[in-house]
Structure formats: C-alpha cells, structure tokens
Nucleic acid binder design. Structure first.
Lengths: 224, 224
DNA sequence: CCGGATCCGTAACGATACTG
DNA sequence: CAGTATCGTTACGGATCCGG
C-alpha cells in the first residue's frame, strides 16, 4: 500500500528512501548533463520500461528533485530538468562515479551499452583542479551522433550535452575509440595518427588534456 | 538466472551494480564506524531479514568490499570489516548523507527508528574543517547503551564505535535528546541545564562543539 | 512518433520458522 | 549466535495498447 521506506532517522537512509530505488540515480545522472525528454531518458536507460520510467519521474517530481520544462529553442518540446535539490546530488553521483572508475571499470563487456554522454560525468570525476588552476578553456566532443562540451575555468569544470559556443578544441571520434581514450588505454595523439580521431583547435590546449583528466590508478579487485 | 545488472559501461552504473541494491549501502554505512558482527548489523537494519542480510554479506565479500574478521579483544568473535575498496565508499556515503541533512531530515516521524551510531556519520558530514584547523580533541559520546567517539585532528575527523582512550570531553544523554542536539534543534548548554544531558571534561572543548559541527541551513522541500 | 497507462510473468524482498 | 529454508508479497521487465 504505502511506499517502501527504511524508516530510519538517518541522513543516509532518508536519502536512499528518495533516490535509492533501482534506476533513480541513473535518471539523475542523465539529467546532470542537461534537461532531457522522456524518450532521451528511455534511450539512456536500456531496459527500464516506459511504465517504470514514468513512475520514477512522477515520484522525483513529487519529491521536488525534478520539474517538467519546455526544452530551450529550437527544440521547444516537453522535458525534465533538475531542481536545486536534484542538482545538489551531483557530489554524490560523482563520488559514486569516482569509486567506479577506481574499482569497477575493468574491461568493457562485449554486450555492454555505452553512451558518450556518460563519459562526460566520468571526466568530471577525473578532473584535476590543480592542473587547471590558471586555465580557461572549452573542449567540445563529437562522439558518434552525440555532442557535448566541457568548460574548464580556473580549477572548476562544468560539462553538458550540446555544442559549445566557441570551443578552443574540438575532438571528433567514434564511441569505441572514445571509450579507449577515456579509460586511458589509448593516447589521443595515437588515435589522431591512426585517423580514428581528429583534434582541431588550440594545440596547447590539446596537449593539456592529459594532465587535466588524469585518473588515480584504477585497481581491479581479485576475480574469483 | 544471472544477477541483475544495468549493463552499462558507465562508472556510476557499474558502482550501482555493486552497491545499488536495497540495504547494501546501509550495510556499508554501519561498517564505516567499525567492524560489526552479524547480529549487530541485523539490529542496525530493522526489517532486513536474516536471509537477505546473509546474501548481501556474501555478495559484498565476493565483490571484495568486506572481509570476515575476528573482532578485536575482548570480544574475539566473528564479524565483518570493510576492505580498502569498501572503505573508499566513504566519500560517496558521506555525500549522500550531506544531501539528506540538507533536504530530507525534516522532523523525525514517531515510529521512525534511530540509533546513535548513525549520527556519527552525520557528524562527519557536518564537520567543519576550518573550525578545527588547530585542534586536536577527542569527544566521547554515551547515548543510551551505545558508545562512540570522534577524534578531531587538525582539520580532519574520524569517528568510530566504542569508547575513546583518553577523551577530552564526554557527553552523556538519551537517544531522544541526542537527536535534538544533532539536528541543531536544541543547544547542548540547555540540555545540560535541564539535566537531560551531562558534559564533562575540558570546558573549552565543550564550547567548541557548536562551531565544529555546523550544518548548512537545511532546506525543506515543499510538501504537497 | 511521443508520452505515457495497463497488464502479466518473473525476480527480489520481508517475515517467520527452523538448524548447527 | 549465525545463519538456512520456506513462503506470501511487492517490485520490476517486457509487451501491448491509447490519446495527442
């Protein structure tokens, strides 16, 4: 009858009462890179089913984490955006992503889904503020048919879906190659030499990329 | 047949494949304040059921986040402790707790469970490093029949279950009063005056308490 | 085609009883 | 005390259908 809750007066438990159910934090993840429409979310959550997604969106609305919006021109269609409360889950999602980068991103499984937009948040998690202390740069990424950009500004980073206004650098590549680059298993310079990626714009800024996003050494857990 | 997974090559999704199921992060939360035995965990997770707890513990072991241990003397009984991988979930759990403190800790419901140990993590989330820049203090809390302590050391904090070696301050009170204190709805000085709490030890350190753990202004979401 | 609502089989969970 | 076994209930996943 009533909603399932942990029924604990504990900040962690109360948070999980709101965002702890299956799919919920992944919906937030997708909205952290900008407003999305129902079908965009559906595409970003393979397997969820329309009914469950609709239910989650309704619940998140009731809880005040998202609001229905009209997407900015030229789209002008209905969508969903994070509220301030929803946006403030960013540190938590990033912390989960950081853990995953370190402990759970072993080789990509063959059938495993990958969407470039997800890497946007990964980049935020890998971002090295010290290396960006005196930089103000905009990187644009065109991966498959997705476009997103990262705005680096004096130790801070912000990255969202969509093209940049005046990118300093534009990187263009395929999803498969992008995975390898993001995981640090391939160097951008090598991909450019192969012709599997192109990087245009400020050559200084291109060279900075490696230092801006450098992971901790990922550790694999023992596999039984 | 096989385990339910999001099947996404995304750091957040991979993390949630490991710790995203019901109860899992709360088990981690309880272990973040020190090793626990099966029945301690059971008591800290009202409603979980022994079978599910056993299953979760087994899974977390397989994933390398926890290990069975013999608890330190004088207990000398079997229990579970976090591994390095498990311990590194602390930032994520703290981020979720911080969000909860700000957005989801409105009044305690009458039937809602509360265990002082949970507040230990809340205190870490509320901890203000700047106010502790030049301090080295140990606070011990005796709440109901639980004892825990917080070790403040030059901008860092660490808090675990069990008594402290040589506390600078000892606070003793009931769970009900402790809730009010932790939530900032009651002042320690007032509780001491009422006789509902006692605070003994370094009076300077007692007075420091308010500045060390000061919350952001909690915001309540609109209630429909 | 987009944004859902409805229905149904399956998997996950919750409560209790039981065992070494 | 530390679990395993069992069973009724709830949540999820997939498909189909509907109104704009």
């Amino acid at each position: 009858m009533s909603r399932r809750t942990y029924n604990q007066y504990c900040a962690t438990a109360r948070t999980l009462d709101v965002v702890g159910e299956r799919w919920t934090l992944l919906i937030v993840r997708d909205l952290l890179t900008g407003p999305k429409r129902f079908s965009d979310l559906l595409a970003g959550l393979p397997g969820i089913g329309t009914g469950l997604l609709a239910g989650r969106l309704k619940f998140l609305q009731d809880e005040g984490l998202i609001v229905p919006v009209i997407l900015p021109p030229p789209a002008r269609v209905a969508g969903y955006a994070l509220t301030e409360a929803g946006e403030e889950l960013r540190p938590a999602v990033m912390a989960l992503a950081s853990w995953g980068l370190r402990w759970a991103m072993a080789e990509r499984r063959a059938d495993e889904d990958f969407q470039p937009g997800w890497a946007v948040l990964g980049m935020q998690a890998l971002f090295n503020p010290d290396a960006a202390r005196d930089l103000r740069l905009v990187y644009e990424f065109r991966v498959g048919d997705e476009v997103f950009h990262a705005r680096v500004d004096h130790g801070a980073i912000d990255s969202v879906h969509g093209p940049a206004q005046r990118p300093d650098v534009t990187i263009e590549t395929s999803p498969a190659v992008f995975v390898e680059l993001a995981a640090g298993r391939m160097k951008l310079a090598d991909a450019v030499r192969d012709g599997t990626a192109t990087a245009s714009g400020d050559r200084q800024a291109i060279r900075k990329l490696r230092s801006l996003f450098h992971p901790q050494q990922p550790k694999d857990r023992a596999v039984t």
